[in-house]
Design a protein around this nucleic acid. Structure first.
Length: 942
RNA sequence: GCCGGAGUGGCGGAAUUGGCAGACGCGCGCGACUCAAAAUCGCGUUCCUUCGGGAAUCUGGGUUCAAUUCCCAGCUUCGGCACCA
């Protein structure tokens, strides 16, 4: 009761105080839990982060790779992805840019679907629940997304346009002569009038365009085309379309019961989601013809500012190599041997009725050293050329190869295996008769599935030749020397040296000169030509699953046609059961209402495609949707796109290097070719964040102490929720910035957050209660205070450009320390002090938006700090008046000079030589040299 | 094997790109305040030292007045690709 009485007595007096005075006496403690929810609500109510349409201001589009929401929610590792870009977005807003900083959800795909099956909950419901939880966490961290633009890729208003783009791809082909995508209608007209000969000829003479049309697509004449049925024509067009359906050897994931793309399988043959070893199956699947864009995907890497690592990964993935294709005629056995040949690359006298075997080689100059050929066991000519005597052995080998997993088959350490087919080919450059073998070290998926073997100069061919006793002929010799290849213990790298025993190119330096000479020789003889080869294969997009964007295709008696535009979106049917089938068919195939397409009389006129698109389709264009996210007339508004795109800064994980980041580039180029978008690259700058590991070391299977990834199953996840609850969102944000270099992988430190929290407490105290708790008196001038403030602005501005978030925080910590020093020197209350605190709060706004808002309100009574301008850097204020110049003798610091900043060079040199520290080492003799680096140091050489 | 990163105190990391190595923070130690603790504040904290200094940025060379930074060789480590013809 006594206490209450005291309070009652005091209250009227307190009420008479001004709010400012009240704040100084009563509200000095920083309690983030009190202020953060208050400001988050106010920001939302007043929509201060909402971005308007295109305007006259310079724009800045900063995008985080949108997340795939999971039931586990976000960890502090996810927060590390999103906080630094938010700081950049907030800084650019205060600098006067029109900033687009949106968020969306990548919702379709296996994890949600698998969770739905396991928990027996509809994936639509799970999607909404997971996404809502992510939004809650984002808001908890004070992230300044424009929530009015939030979308979810599993909503029909979004996937309707994913389907529209699919249709554009289906109705387009890559015209190699224009080097761009063009309407299939134009192609059909050309086929009607002229056939496809011109297109094939063009590709033949422009090897970089090998991917423009299907490998097995043969030329047709106009007459042949016009004689085809519509069904045959549609089948033929599949060899051209940018979205096409084909039988293909695919990676089948037996756990998820679905096919996966090459990009989704690691080097051990495991699917990246399920971790299951994939099985090779031949299935009819939908693909996007990314190989048509192989060349441009490599070239345009030069116009983007991306991490070297990602650029090189994309280059390697596309895997462009230069070489030649050479045709080897199969010897039909009616000839005795090479004596029948006429030489000079002319046709052998006995022309084989069998087709020739085409090989791809990057070293056509070593043709004269080709002593045998090797075909992949899957090569289509194997059955045809195998002799009766060898048939049993060959078939047994093929059966064995088929049974093996890719993992064991491509194990390099394993000894070479293979079988002779009994057939021979004629080496076209020297008419030597060489045996044809099959071996699993030759892959059907690369090049032509057949090689010429040059054992003297290729390690694999060498091992094979040694094992099976095949001849080894050396055709490259080190300068001045020559060997016969006998007694070699390993293949000799054909990188340098000179060609020997190589007919017309003998004596040519090995390398580009010999390769060019060999290609010229082959082209002249009509046996081969220059060729570009790409490692990349077409992008497999179809999935035998329910939870994805339905593919808008109808199979009719005449072949595949698209779902008419006015019937889009083709909606996912609401069903009870969406479990994958045992047959490998999509669950949609079991729903007659969905599958059957009927005319107005109820007659079935076609069947809908039942595969859905992999979620990569959604993420390949979602960034194009944010500028006009709810347009129901078009996928995007051209004017808004033109203003906002390309993305200025894209931030996300490096794990998407050859997935999303490659696919998005292809789609952007297609849309550019079709005049839908006015740019060829979607992301001008890209930055990858590092991973945050769990804080505790554990002992791995090798007995080493290591840090692990955070994972729900290991129970080592630290959530932003728990950090915010204890120290507030601002401390979490500051620590996410401060923890390490942005791109570095580093363990979370539980002691780090209290560290930055202490800094924020100090900021709070110095901003609000500068006249309390004075420390020991200091010497610090108003001039020095201004200098510290403006140097901090300068450092912030520099560091934010280079993504140096950790040094932004350390710079602001140093500035805070200096403010305490200035306070102890009695500067509080001066005009310079007011400016210094004003700058502090503005610089703090992007980093600790809640605290900055609270401080701003208490200091100025205004709202909102986030709509204030960025502090202007004053170079004069930042300039040093005096500088300390270290004096070195032979590179070692022996003294220091404190001089006015504009002291001239001669004076500084004289002072340096005369300094006590220097004189002790000079010993009277004149120095050999005195070097002065302006404003840095003096080095005296004695 | 090929491609691309990275190696700096007990820890996370700075160093204006050739110019004072170790900013800032964590941790630790000492001290102030306190009956005490917490919080807070102050001081110290690369190593060796005979207190003059000396040695240090993965190792060994090199260029330079000067190297964490550039060059050569090697080691370790992370990521990617890989019987790619």
């Amino acid at each position: 009761m006594a206490v209450s009485g005291w309070l009652l007595a005091k209250t009227p007096a307190a009420n008479r105080q001004s709010p400012a005075a009240w704040s100084k006496t009563m509200a000095d403690k920083y309690i983030p839990q009190d202020i953060e929810p208050k400001w988050q609500k106010r920001w939302e109510d007043t929509e201060i982060y909402k971005t308007g349409p295109a305007d006259k201001r310079p724009k800045y589009y900063i995008l985080d790779m949108y997340p795939y929401p999971s039931g586990a929610g976000m960890s502090v590792g996810h927060a590390h992805n999103y906080v630094p870009p938010d700081v950049v977005a907030r800084t650019y807003r205060m600098r006067g840019y029109n900033v687009l900083h949106p968020m969306g959800f990548d919702a379709f795909g296996l994890p949600t679907e698998n969770a739905a099956i396991k928990e027996k909950v509809n994936p639509h419901e799970l999607n909404e629940a997971y996404s809502a939880n992510y939004v809650r966490q984002f808001k908890l961290m004070g992230l300044s997304y424009d929530w009015s633009r939030l979308f979810n890729t599993a909503h029909p208003s979004f996937y309707r346009w994913t389907q529209w783009i699919f249709v554009q791809l289906f109705e387009s082909w890559y015209d190699p002569r224009k080097d761009k995508a063009s309407p299939v209608a134009e192609l059909e007209q050309e086929l009607r009038e002229r056939g496809s000969g011109d297109i094939h000829d063009y590709i033949d003479s422009h090897p970089a365009h090998v991917g423009a049309i299907g490998k097995t697509t043969q030329p047709v004449t106009a007459a042949e085309w016009n004689a085809m049925s519509r069904k045959q024509q549609n089948a033929y067009l599949m060899g051209f379309r940018l979205a096409y359906r084909a039988d293909s050897m695919v990676n089948w994931d037996p756990v998820d019961k679905v096919v996966v793309a090459n990009e989704e399988v690691d080097a051990q043959g495991r699917a990246w989601r399920s971790g299951a070893v994939v099985i090779k199956k031949t299935l009819r699947q939908w693909f996007f013809r990314i190989t048509a864009y192989a060349s441009r995907l490599v070239e345009d890497l030069s116009i983007v500012d991306w991490p070297d690592k990602i650029v090189s990964m994309q280059r390697n993935w596309v895997g462009k190599s230069m070489g030649a294709e050479v045709d080897f005629v199969i010897d039909d056995g009616r000839r005795g041997g090479s004596e029948a040949a006429t030489g000079d690359g002319a046709e052998p006298s006995s022309v084989s009725r069998l087709p020739s075997i085409r090989v791809y080689t990057t070293r056509p100059d070593t043709l004269w050293g080709a002593t045998f050929m090797v075909l992949s066991p899957e090569h289509p000519l194997v059955a045809q050329i195998t002799t009766e005597a060898q048939r049993e052995a060959v078939e047994a080998y093929i059966a064995k190869a088929k049974a093996e997993t890719d993992e064991s088959r491509t194990d390099e350490s394993k000894a070479k295996t293979g079988v002779f087919t009994g057939a021979y080919a004629i080496n076209p450059v020297n008419n030597e008769r060489i045996p044809i073998w099959i071996a699993d070290y030759v892959l059907m998926t690369y090049g032509t599935g057949a090689i010429m073997a040059v054992p003297a100069h290729d390690q694999r061919d060498f091992e094979f030749a040694r094992k099976f006793g095949l001849p080894i002929v050396q055709v490259v010799a080190a300068e001045g020397g020559k060997g016969n290849g006998i007694g070699l213990t390993e293949a000799y790298e054909a990188k340098e040296g000179v060609m020997v025993d190589s007919g017309p190119i003998t004596g040519t330096p090995a390398g580009k000169p010999s390769i060019d000479a060999a290609i010229a020789f082959c082209e002249e003889g009509g046996v081969g030509k220059r060729r570009v080869n790409y490692r990349i294969r077409d992008w497999l997009i179809s999935r035998q699953r329910y939870w994805g964007t339905p593919i808008p295709i109808i199979h009719t008696a005449d072949g595949e046609v698209t779902v008419p535009d006015n019937e889009l979106p083709l909606r996912l049917p609401e069903v009870e059961n969406y479990e994958p089938t045992q047959t490998g068919e999509s669950p949609l195939a079991t729903i007659p209402d969905y599958v059957e397409v009927k005319d107005s009389n109820g007659n079935i006129i076609g069947h809908r495609e039942t595969d859905t698109m992999a979620t990569w389709a959604c993420s390949s264009w979602y960034f194009l949707r944010f500028p006009d996210p709810f347009n129901d007339k078009a996928a995007f508004n051209y004017d808004e796109l033109k203003y906002w795109m390309p993305v200025d800064m894209y931030v996300g994980g490096a794990e998407h290097a050859v997935l999303h980041l490659l696919y998005s580039r292809m789609w952007t180029k297609v849309l550019f070719d079709l005049d839908f978008v006015p740019f060829t690259e979607p992301f001008m700058r890209l930055r990858n964040q590092g991973m945050i590991l769990a804080p505790e070391k554990v002992i791995d299977e090798h007995g080493r102490a290591i840090f692990e990834k955070m994972s729900k199953s290991k129970g080592n996840v630290i959530t932003p929720d728990e950090v915010v609850a204890e120290h507030g969102a601002d401390a979490l944000r500051a620590y996410e910035m401060f923890i390490s270099d942005f791109a570095a992988t580093v363990p979370w430190s539980t002691q780090g957050v209290p560290g930055v929290r202490r800094w924020l407490d100090r900021v709070w105290r110095i901003a609000l209660s500068a006249d309390e708790d004075k420390g020991t008196p200091q010497k610090f001038t108003a001039r020095e205070l201004r200098r510290a403030a403006h140097q901090t602005i300068q450092r912030y501005d520099r560091d934010i450009e280079s993504f140096g978030f950790n040094t932004i925080i350390s710079g602001m910590m140093e500035y805070t320390n200096m403010l305490f020093k200035a306070r102890d020197a009695g500067l509080a209350g001066t005009p310079e002090w007011a400016e210094a605190i004003d700058i502090l709060v503005r610089l703090l706004a992007p980093v600790a938006p809640h605290m900055a808002e609270e401080l701003w309100e208490r200091m100025s009574g205004g709202y909102s700090i986030h709509q204030q301008s960025w502090p202007k850097f004053d170079a004069a204020a930042a300039r040093e008046d005096e500088i300390t110049i270290p004096v070195q003798i032979n590179g070692k610091v022996r003294d220091r000079l404190v001089v006015a900043v504009d002291t001239d060079e001669d004076t500084i040199k004289q002072l340096a030589v005369a300094s006590d520290g220097a004189r002790r080492y000079i010993n009277g003799t004149p120095p050999k040299q005195v070097i002065y680096v302006k404003g840095r140091l003096v080095n005296i050489v004695v």
